[in-house]
């Protein structure tokens, strides 16, 4: 624990992510102003005591929109990573159990194929199929995450399964499902958590891109990417419009990347021995 507090990436990442989560949670009960209320008389205002981060072209309070946007970004990250983690873990473990068989090869080739499709492209295909929307975008991002987790899970599970105590458990009569759940999953959990943090950042970035293109979150729901796309028209008159939502995205991505890096260092026993 003390080591964790001294690790700079982990510390900065943890504090920043906690801050964003806190803002998102607070937005459930309180925001500086109603993020949906338009006010023709207070359009495109710069930051002030009344509007902390200024207002948009409809006179909506940017600070409030960003807080609700944080909720949106975190939900997207949570669901997309959840889809990727659950499906990826299941497929990866299945492939590891079937190591060397046709099933293993089939699963891995299928995942290679999905992975070869750039994330926003697969999202575009899915959105073309189902129409634009937050749910569709999240599903697309989640599916893209599946191969990332599956490859990692398969590789790590194969390593764990070669260890002696797994052989011992098998000889003792433990079934394959029991071995996977009791012995393999706990051993690869750390690795998966680290990757989940990094993919969380990737998901936030991808949702921002899709919403910027108009394929993700639909109005009036506030989304950081969407706010940037609206800002483009008016940023010559009010530059702050383009600055705050972008900074919010960058901060969130930075937070979860640093958190993932820090966790990786803290969980990696090789680095621990070196006393880093």
């Amino acid at each position: 624990m003390m080591r964790a507090l001294r690790h700079p990436s982990f510390l900065v990442g943890a504090v920043l992510s906690a801050l964003i989560v806190a803002l998102a949670l607070v937005s459930l009960v309180w925001t500086p102003a109603d993020p949906g209320r338009m006010n023709i008389l207070a359009r495109l205002r710069p930051p002030s005591a009344e509007f902390w981060l200024g207002t948009d072209q409809f006179g909506r309070d940017i600070a409030s929109m960003l807080m609700v946007g944080a909720r949106n970004a975190l939900t997207v990250g949570l669901v997309a990573v959840g889809i990727g983690l659950v499906l990826g873990l299941a497929l990866g473990l299945l492939a590891a159990r079937a190591d060397g068989t046709i099933l293993d090869a089939a699963i891995m080739r299928l995942l290679d194929f999905v992975f070869a499709f750039p994330i926003v492209l697969s999202a575009i295909l899915i959105v073309t199929l189902l129409g634009p929307g937050l749910v569709e975008a999240v599903v697309a991002i989640g599916l893209f995450n599946v191969p990332v987790f599956a490859r990692l899970a398969r590789g790590a599970a194969l390593q764990v399964m070669r260890r002696d105590y797994i052989r011992a458990a098998r000889l003792a009569g433990a079934g394959p499902a029991r071995i996977l759940l009791r012995h393999v999953v706990p051993n690869i959990a750390g690795l998966m958590i680290v990757q989940a943090s990094v993919q969380f950042a990737v998901a936030i970035l991808a949702e921002a891109s899709l919403s910027y293109l108009g394929l993700g979150t639909q109005p009036p729901a506030p989304s950081w990417g969407r706010m940037l796309s609206d800002a483009q028209t008016f940023m010559a008159r009010q530059p702050f419009l383009a600055i705050f939502p972008g900074a919010a995205i960058a901060l969130a991505v930075l937070a979860f990347n640093l958190l993932g890096d820090g966790l990786r260092d803290l969980l990696d026993p090789r680095l621990r021995e070196r006393g880093a």
Partner: peptide, 21 residues
């Protein structure tokens, strides 16, 4: 780390803001 976190379209918007506008 900052470069990793900043989305390319925000870079684009900032460049337009600074170098064009």
């Amino acid at each position: 780390q900052l470069g990793l976190a900043i989305p390319n379209f925000w870079f684009g918007l900032l460049f337009v803001l600074i170098f064009s506008i």
